[in-house]
Amino acid sequence: MRVVIAVVVVVLIMALVGWLRFSSPAGNPTIQVDTEKVKEDTSILVEKSKQVVDQAAEKVDASIERDPVERNPVEPEPVEREPVEQ
């Protein structure tokens, strides 16, 4: 049942985005896939994701190149424990 729901959701999303078109010319129901729009949209998505990854890599490189901040580790104070009576 989950698979059927997932397929229906994917088909609806594809129709809303404009990748699928439903029509019935002359009484024959048809489904058309706009492959050019799919290619355009996916290439735009790939380019944008590359830009985001490049920006993230630049930020990481910039943070590595900065001088490390000296940190003074705080030593924990010794804890005195009371003897346990048995």
Rank of each mutant, 00 (worst) to 15 (best):
L20P: 01
V69P: 00
E65R: 13
E77W: 05
K48Q: 14
V38M: 07
V7E: 15
Q51G: 12
F22R: 05
L20V: 08
V74R: 06
Q55W: 08
V79C: 00
K50D: 08
Q32H: 09
R66L: 10
Q55S: 14
Q32G: 01
A62S: 12
V7Q: 14
A62D: 13
P73G: 02
Q55A: 12
T30W: 00
A57M: 10
M1C: 09
A6P: 03
V53S: 07
V84P: 00
S43F: 07
I64Q: 10
K59G: 06
V11T: 08
V52N: 04
E65Q: 12
K48Y: 12
D67T: 06
M1V: 12
D41R: 14
P76V: 04
V17R: 13
V4D: 15
R81F: 12
T30D: 01
V4Q: 15
V74W: 01
P83T: 00
E40K: 12
Q32W: 04
G18E: 05
S43N: 12
I31P: 00
Q55R: 13
A62I: 05
E40M: 10
S23T: 07
E70R: 12
L20M: 04
V60H: 07
P29Y: 10
S63N: 10
K48E: 15
A62Q: 14
V10M: 13
L12M: 11
V3F: 15
G18P: 00
R81D: 08
V33M: 07
I5L: 15
G18M: 02
P73L: 09
A6S: 15
S24N: 03
V69E: 09
Q51N: 12
E58K: 05
N72I: 14
E85V: 02
V60L: 11
N28L: 08
D34M: 03
W19S: 01
E80N: 05
P73S: 05
W19T: 00
N72L: 11
